[in-house]
């Protein structure tokens, strides 16, 4: 129970990797805020809350669109009312709008940058003062190996994830004197609902470039987030940890 008494906010945690991260932090005793973007997700967010309660931990679900500063501020206020503080922030909310540059619409670019990058800015800004004041905090940004190496058809996504890395390092420098760390995780191919839809041929091609010869699991990302959130990671900041089975070393 290494995170007993800590309060963690994971954006976009009603499903996918965010959900697995939230459950992992809760297993270690953290109180969780399950953030979700739209009313459609309310039910799945509530299910995550129930799963966490079954683990014997506390959790609340809060709807807030991370691209809207006012909604983010409202969410942070509610968290303060409910749990007094925020110790751990995981900026996980992310979307894709994949297409080749030639076919990419301005809306595709804006939507991805808004959620993946500006969303992280909004939430980090809103909680940074709380962490600075308490002289401790952990900010964990979920980037991607695509932000490090690029990927055809994902220029918007790659730009947002590379942007997150620059953002992480700048925040790390600004907040380090206050005991607040900021790190990024760059997952490679992680088995999710998204990768389940790929054809055998594409899967085979992908595996051929991964030395570990398998896709990662959401738990691999969650374990890394748990480590970065832990007391043991207090001297690590501005770091980007790849969780990719050796794909991009």
């Amino acid at each position: 129970m290494s995170l007993k008494g800590k309060v963690a906010l994971v954006t976009g945690s009603s499903r996918g990797i965010g959900k697995v991260i939230a459950l992992k932090l809760a297993e270690e005793g953290a109180k969780l805020v399950i953030n979700y973007p739209v009313a459609d997700e309310a039910e799945s967010a509530q299910q995550v809350v129930e799963e966490i309660e079954d683990l014997g931990a506390e959790a609340i679900a809060l709807q807030a669109d991370v691209t809207a500063m006012e909604e983010v501020k409202g969410m942070v206020k509610e968290v303060k009312q409910e749990f007094d503080t925020i110790d751990i922030l995981v900026n996980n909310a992310g979307i894709t709008r994949d297409t080749l540059l030639l076919r990419m619409k301005e809306e595709d670019w804006d939507a991805v940058l808004d959620v993946n990058l500006k969303g992280a800015f909004n939430v980090t800004k809103a909680i940074s003062r709380i962490m600075m004041k308490q002289r401790s905090g952990r900010i964990i940004n979920i980037s991607s190996v695509v932000g490090l190496m690029g990927n055809a058809g994902q220029s918007n996504y790659a730009a947002s994830k590379a942007g997150l890395i620059g953002f992480t390092k700048s925040v790390a420098k600004e907040l380090a004197p206050r005991g607040v760390t900021a790190n990024a995780i760059a997952p490679g191919f992680i088995e999710t609902a998204m990768t389940d839809q790929l054809s055998d041929k594409v899967v085979e091609q992908m595996l051929s470039v991964i030395p570990a010869n398998s896709f990662g699991q959401p738990e691999d990302v969650a374990d890394t987030a748990l480590f970065l959130a832990s007391e043991g990671a207090k001297y690590i900041t501005g770091e980007v940890i790849r969780v990719d089975g050796g794909m991009t070393m």
Partner: peptide, 11 residues
């Protein structure tokens, strides 16, 4: 005060 303190005081 350091630069971050100043920002906090001003805020």
């Amino acid at each position: 005060a350091d630069s971050l303190d100043i920002v906090e005081v001003v805020m």
